[in-house]
Amino acid sequence: MHTILICDDEKDILSALKIYLGGEGYNILTAENGEEALELLCREEIHLILLDIMMPAMDGISALAEIRKTHNLPVILLTAKSEDSDKILGLNLGADDYITKPFNPAEVQARVRSQLRRYFLLGGGTPPEAVLRIGGIELCDAEKTVTLDGEPVSLTPTEYDILRFLMEHPGKVYSPRELYTEVWKDIPYGSENTVAVHIRHLREKLEINPAEPRYLKVVWGKGYKIEKQDKGGLR
């Protein structure tokens, strides 16, 4: 049983989140501003924090900075500011993920689940040699299996090949043409968007929100890449 601290100044949102996450079987604590959250963090054993950015008394960004001084636990930012600069600031300050308001409740559940699994189930131990790991994705080439946050994902052989190739070269951008030659071992001829369709399917299987992928990124006009991430994705 994990305990989750939800921190938001809107009571209605607080209680809605409480209902969603409580329904998933988590223990829920709530705070209405940053100071309250820090106080609770000292008193209780908390496993994950959902933190709103715009709050009175102490906003989410300063609260996050405070939390990171003493605690090591997953923090997901809740933000109505969908400005890119805010996201980057939050992630740089040590947030593990962010959700933009207005959010899809199912997405909140999925992201919370993903963070908790990665942190508490997969956090320790180094993976065996044959396993490629990027963030929450683990690819075991010997067994030809892929898991996302510990949950098995079923991929078609082509999708598997693409994913393996990209995971072998994290951070590097491959054009659809290059991917085709590498994966199909053939010259792409009149199959312009085959790769793009497969990538789309892969994203739908691996990402919580395929429109805003965390791992399998689209570099528009250039190609695709798997985002390079530090082991475990946490500090």
């Binding site: 968007n193 790769v195 006009g221 250039k222 190609g223």
Partner: peptide, 29 residues
């Protein structure tokens, strides 16, 4: 950036959705 690649990528994103609407996509780059 290469417009051809971007169009391939964009078409790839939408091909399934358009197919569901009974629309065929013809891509020429």
């Amino acid at each position: 950036l290469n417009v051809s690649i971007l169009l391939e990528q964009a078409a790839g994103e939408y091909v399934d959705r358009l197919q569901k609407q009974g629309l065929a996509t013809v891509l020429t780059v």
